[in-house]
C-alpha cells in the first residue's frame, strides 16, 4: 500500500477502530484485496457486467416495483418517504451493517429494510430471504454498485471483534476456520475451483450453482456445511457478526451487487 493510502486509512480508522494493526493481524493487506469476480471466467464476468445478461437484474427490477408500491396500514411506498432510490439509497448498502443508535443495535441491510416495512409502512414482515425481501435488498444494494465499502462506525467495533473471533475459530468435523481457506489459501485450488478471499461485496447475488439469487447468509451456510459444521440458525447473530467482520476486512472494495458467481 502507498504511504498516502495508509495515511488515509489510518485517518479513517485511527479514531474509529484503533488499534487497527491489532485487529488486522494476519489479515490480507488492503492493497492485496481481490474480489471474487477477479477469479471468474471471462464469460461469467461478462454476465455480471452486462445488465441485459445478468440474471440478478430480474430481482432488481422486481425490487424497483416494490419500492414504488404502497403497502401496509400506513399505505405508503418506500418512495413516498425516501424519494428516488438512486439518491436516497446511494452508498447505503456499502455502509451496512450499520449501528442504529435509536434501537441501540447493529442491523444489516435486510434488517434496515425490514424495520421500515414493519414500523413505518405498518406492513407484515416479509419472509426473510424470500423473493420479495431479496428483491428489495437487491434494488437498494444496486444503488451502491461501484461504490467503496465503508466500514468506519466505531459503534460496530465490538460486533466486528466477535465476527473476527468467529472467522478465526476452527469448526466442524473438518476442524477448519474461515481463515484457513479465504485468508491463507486464496488463489489456490480447492478441488479444481480457485478459492477467493471470501468477500461480501457482491451480495445479494445470483449464483449459477444455486440457479437463483441469494443472500450472504446463504453463502455462509454453504461454507459451514462444507466444513461439516452445524450452520447457525437462520437469522442468528453470528451471521451479523461475521458480516460486520467481512465488510470491515473488505473496507474500500467496490460493491458489485447484483454480482454473478459460479
Amino acid at each position: 500500500m502507498t504511504v498516502l493510502g495508509s495515511r488515509i486509512l489510518a485517518g479513517l480508522f485511527g479514531v474509529a477502530l484503533a488499534p487497527l494493526a491489532e485487529l488486522r493481524a494476519g489479515e490480507i493487506p488492503f492493497a492485496e484485496l481481490r474480489s471474487g469476480s477477479e477469479l471468474m471466467s471471462p464469460d461469467t464476468r461478462a454476465m455480471q457486467d452486462a445488465d441485459s445478461a445478468n440474471p440478478g437484474m430480474l430481482w432488481v427490477i422486481e425490487g424497483e416495483a416494490l419500492w414504488n408500491a404502497k403497502a401496509g396500514a400506513a399505505n405508503l411506498a418506500c418512495a413516498d418517504c425516501h424519494g428516488a432510490a438512486e439518491l436516497a439509497m446511494r452508498g447505503v448498502a456499502a455502509r451496512h451493517p450499520a449501528f442504529d443508535a435509536k434501537r441501540n443495535q447493529a442491523v444489516n441491510l435486510a434488517g434496515s429494510i425490514e424495520w421500515c416495512r414493519v414500523e413505518r409502512q405498518k406492513a407484515p414482515a416479509l419472509t426473510a430471504e424470500g423473493p420479495e425481501a431479496l428483491a428489495l435488498e437487491a434494488y437498494v444494494a444496486r444503488q451502491s454498485r461501484g461504490l467503496s465499502i465503508a466500514s468506519t462506525d466505531a459503534a460496530l467495533r465490538p460486533l466486528i471483534e466477535s465476527g473476527r473471533e468467529l472467522y478465526l475459530r476452527r469448526q466442524g468435523q473438518l476442524d477448519l476456520s474461515c481463515a484457513h481457506c479465504h485468508t491463507e489459501n486464496w488463489g489456490r485450488k480447492l478441488a479444481g475451483l480457485a478459492l477467493s478471499q471470501g468477500h461480501p461485496n457482491g451480495y445479494p447475488l445470483y449464483r449459477l450453482e444455486w440457479q437463483s439469487f441469494g443472500s450472504l447468509e446463504r453463502r455462509l451456510r454453504n461454507c459451514l456445511t462444507g466444513m461439516r459444521a452445524e450452520p447457525y440458525p437462520a437469522g442468528a447473530s453470528e451471521y451479523l457478526a461475521l458480516e460486520a467482520y467481512l465488510k470491515w476486512r473488505a473496507h474500500g472494495m467496490p460493491m458489485e451487487s447484483p454480482a454473478v458467481r459460479p
Binding site: R170, G172, Q173, D175, T225, A229, E230, P231
Partner: peptide, 9 residues
Amino acid sequence: LSRVAGAFR
C-alpha cells in the same frame, strides 16, 4: 472439535 454437523457428530 466444535459445532460438528449432526450427521457427522
